[in-house]
Every structure is written in structure tokens, then in C-alpha cells.
Design a protein around this nucleic acid. Structure first.
Length: 275
DNA sequence: CGGCATCAATACGCGTTACT
DNA sequence: AGTAACGCGTATTGATGCCG
């Protein structure tokens, strides 16, 4: 009787190594050609980078995939607040159209589940620290990351109707202005349309209300600032676009299930691999 | 930090208009 | 006739202040 299950697993990606880059506000991404794919996930700030003459501005919670054999390099010095995860991996055999569950990974994407992507990178870095580079579990995590990117929305993707364009413009405004006192009405005023109509088309395309999208952005930003441990909770509330820290605490608890202070005390104890 | 009251903002249902 | 864009009236939810 067998007492262990033997599996022959074909791994479509082979991870060589990964890391978390934390900017000190000096230097520029090196200009180089590498022999593996590189997946970059920006946690904070904006990474300005070009690949084979194509320029990318990779914002918070966005991924960029760089190809082997293509020259890439930074377009500007690293901003002081920039943080991004990176992982190098090889694809040993080119996938063929018709292969089962063929993944179509967009080069530049907005990550749908940023907390999930952050968790995957943290686990990958922990595996690397415990087991060393080229450990098999890292390949599985890279596959999950690529799956996440596949199910995310491509930056500059096809907008097939006027309402999709309008919803996309609203989403871009929320992404860049969540720290300002914006509301659904003010967004509609900026986009010169009816607030009710904007709310409806936004919900159609993003499966959430404008207010939910604004709150989600603000709470995500707040979780980043809380884990830093530098600012007071009242200051974090203000930096995230909440005028009233009391209201911020309520929205935060509704979204995460814990108060800001409890969240901070839990996550400050987590180890972050900075290699 | 949580509960409650109040007012403003937003979402929802439905109808109209324009276009194909 | 079908669909998308848009607006209106009203119910619901959010934002805010106050108190314990």
C-alpha cells in the first residue's frame, strides 16, 4: 500500500530570486538587459521606467512585467517614498495557443486584490530566506502572482463604450486624488456629468459604488501608513483624505474588522524582508 | 472608542430621449 | 424594437456632532 503520493508537476515558471526595494531617495533604476522575466509590483510611490523605448509610470498597486532580452532602465531618480517588490523568473517552454488554462498576463496592470499580492510577495521572500533561491514553492507563488495579474485590469486597456471611458476616468481620479476631500458629486463635477449617472456607470464597470471605491483606496493607504508606525492615527486619517479622525476609525473598522490602533499593533510585529 | 440623532449625500427604480 | 445615455423623485446610506 502506498504511503505517499508521488506527483509529476510541470512548472511553467522557474523563479530565480525576488526582493523588496525600499527607496532612500537616491539613484536610478539601472539600465540593463536581463535573461529572465521580471515582475514588479509597486507598493508605494511611482516608478518611472522604460523598456525598449516604451515609457511606463507604474503607480501604487500596479504591476509591470519586463521581458528578457529587452533593455530597460529608470527614466528618473527614485522618489523617496518608492517601495516595490520584484521577482525574476524564467519561462522554460513557450506556451502554445490552445494549451489548457493559457494565462494572458498584461504588461502593465492595476492589481484587483493588492493585499493578496502583497501577501504572496511576503511569503515568497520568506520562502527564499528559509529555503534559499530557486526553491520550488517560490514557483507556485509566482504562478499565483501571474494569475492575480491576469485577473486584474490592464492599464490603458480597451474601453469599448463612452460609459466605460467615463468610469475609467472616475477610477483614475479616485486613484490619484483619494487623499483630497473628494465625493461622488465632486468627481461628477470634475468630469462634467450627472452624479447619479456617474455612480451608475461606475458601479456597472467596477462592481462597487464611488464611495466604496474612495473608502477602499483610503483604507488601503491607511494600512500602509499604520504598518510604518511613524504617524499618529489622527495624522494618518488626514493624509488619507478623512477630515474627521473619528469617522476614519469607523470606516476603517467597517472595512477591516479591527480598529486602526489594533491593526497597527498587530502588523508592526510582522517581519518584512528587505533583501 | 462606541452609541445615537440629525441632516446631507448617494443609490435605486423608473421614465424619457436619441440613436441604430 | 433594442440599447445606451441621461435625469427625476424618493428611499437609503453616509457624514458629522455630541455624549458617555
Amino acid at each position: 500500500m502506498d504511503t505517499q503520493l508521488s506527483l509529476n508537476v510541470h512548472m511553467p515558471v522557474h523563479v530565480s530570486n525576488g526582493g523588496l526595494f525600499i527607496s532612500r531617495g537616491v539613484g536610478t533604476h539601472p539600465r540593463r538587459v536581463i535573461d529572465s522575466f521580471e515582475l514588479i509590483y509597486v507598493k508605494r510611490g511611482i516608478l518611472a521606467i522604460e523598456e525598449s523605448g516604451r515609457r511606463f509610470e507604474v503607480g501604487e498597486e500596479e504591476t509591470l512585467l519586463l521581458w528578457p532580452g529587452r533593455e530597460h532602465g529608470g527614466c528618473a531618480p527614485f522618489p523617496p517614498d518608492l517601495q516595490f517588490f520584484w521577482v525574476h523568473f524564467a519561462v522554460p517552454a513557450a506556451p502554445r495557443q490552445g494549451d489548457a488554462t493559457l494565462l494572458q498576463v498584461p504588461q502593465h496592470a492595476y492589481v484587483s486584490r493588492p493585499e493578496h499580492m502583497t501577501g504572496l510577495f511576503r511569503r515568497l521572500l520568506n520562502e527564499q530566506a528559509l529555503l534559499g533561491e530557486r526553491a520550488v514553492p517560490m514557483n507556485l507563488m509566482a504562478m499565483q502572482m501571474l494569475w492575480e495579474v491576469t485577473s486584474s485590469r490592464a492599464v490603458g486597456g480597451v474601453l469599448d463604450s463612452e460609459s466605460a471611458v467615463l468610469a475609467g476616468r472616475a477610477e483614475a481620479l479616485i486613484r490619484t486624488s483619494f487623499h483630497l476631500p473628494i465625493t461622488a458629486s465632486s468627481l461628477a463635477a470634475q468630469l462634467e456629468c450627472n452624479p447619479d449617472y456617474l455612480g451608475r456607470v461606475f458601479r456597472k464597470h467596477y462592481q462597487c459604488t464611488l464611495t466604496e471605491a474612495i473608502h477602499t483606496r483610503r483604507v488601503r493607504h491607511a494600512t500602509n501608513l499604520l504598518t510604518d508606525g511613524k504617524l499618529s492615527i489622527d495624522d494618518i486619517a488626514l493624509q488619507c483624505g478623512f477630515d474627521d479622525p473619528g469617522y476614519f476609525r469607523r470606516v476603517f473598522k467597517r472595512a477591516t474588522g479591527t480598529s486602526p490602533r489594533a491593526y497597527r499593533s498587530l502588523h508592526l510585529r510582522l517581519h518584512i524582508n528587505t533583501d
